[in-house]
């Protein structure tokens, strides 16, 4: 099933190759603001997943009836509706976490990653691809949020998901849970991500060269 494989590919690209945070550097506001603990990062990631998948599904389903002159406002109406649903649901179900995330749940409306996916992908592709793309992108976003949130919580509070890791003698590195810690950690993670990608590229290049020389040797041998 070629189509299934390519739909799967649409999902995978969001996780690494086109990761919304590490490659596209979108949605930085929640990335820096709510990643002071892993729990906050997880809830924000799940909320974004719900909004992005729902919006992509609707935008892709109704793309034929959305006039392009008013498309941005229609996308925003769709996104804002999903965000309101998330906002009230969190407030009713997990009031404590809603309190910590505060103003950043309503601000999902303005997450450029979500509007960007509607404009760049969902409005041009079939429902299946749009949903797979949305799942991949939001999982990539979730991974990035969790990476940042975990690093900051471990260093800044000595715990992970509120579970104490180091005991009472741990002196927390408080700057990590303050805004500067967000920038520091994000910078270091971006550095690591790009370093790793670069290394992988070099490695693949070397493999390709080696293959080529083997092939050349093979040709010579044959000759």
């Amino acid at each position: 099933m070629a189509t299934d494989a390519s739909a799967y590919e649409e999902m995978l690209k969001g996780l690494w190759r086109e990761n919304p945070t590490f490659v596209q550097v979108l949605g930085m506001c929640p990335m820096l603001a709510v990643t002071n603990s892993a729990t906050n990062a997880l809830v924000m990631g799940l909320a974004t997943l719900f909004v992005l998948v729902g919006s992509s599904l609707l935008v892709s389903s109704f793309k034929r009836w959305i006039p392009k002159q008013v498309r941005i406002s229609l996308y925003i109406i769709i996104i804002a509706t999903f965000v309101t649903v998330v906002d009230y649901s969190l407030l009713a179900l997990v009031p404590a976490i809603h309190k910590e995330l505060g103003a950043f749940i309503p601000l999902i409306v303005a997450n450029c990653m979500i509007l960007g996916r509607q404009e760049a992908f969902a409005s041009k592709h079939s429902i299946k691809y749009a949903v797979m793309d949305a799942i991949g992108m939001s999982l990539g976003f979730l991974i990035a949020l969790l990476a940042l949130g975990s690093v900051r919580e471990i260093l800044g509070s000595g715990s992970l998901f509120n579970v104490d890791l180091f005991g009472a003698n741990f002196e927390p590195w408080v700057i990590m849970i303050l805004p500067p810690g967000g920038f520091l950690t994000l910078g270091l993670l971006l550095l690591f991500f790009n370093w790793f990608t670069e290394r992988r590229k070099q490695f693949l290049l070397k493999v390709a060269q080696a293959d080529q020389s083997v092939a050349i040797v093979g040709v010579k041998d044959n000759g």
Binding site: I66, S73, I77, T84, Y88
Partner: peptide, 20 residues
């Protein structure tokens, strides 16, 4: 199209508000 989208969105928002 704007009016229909706004109306549907409004109904959903009011529904979730009342539900929660």
């Amino acid at each position: 199209s704007m009016a229909i989208a706004g109306f549907i969105s409004g109904v959903i928002i009011i529904a979730i508000y009342l539900a929660t």
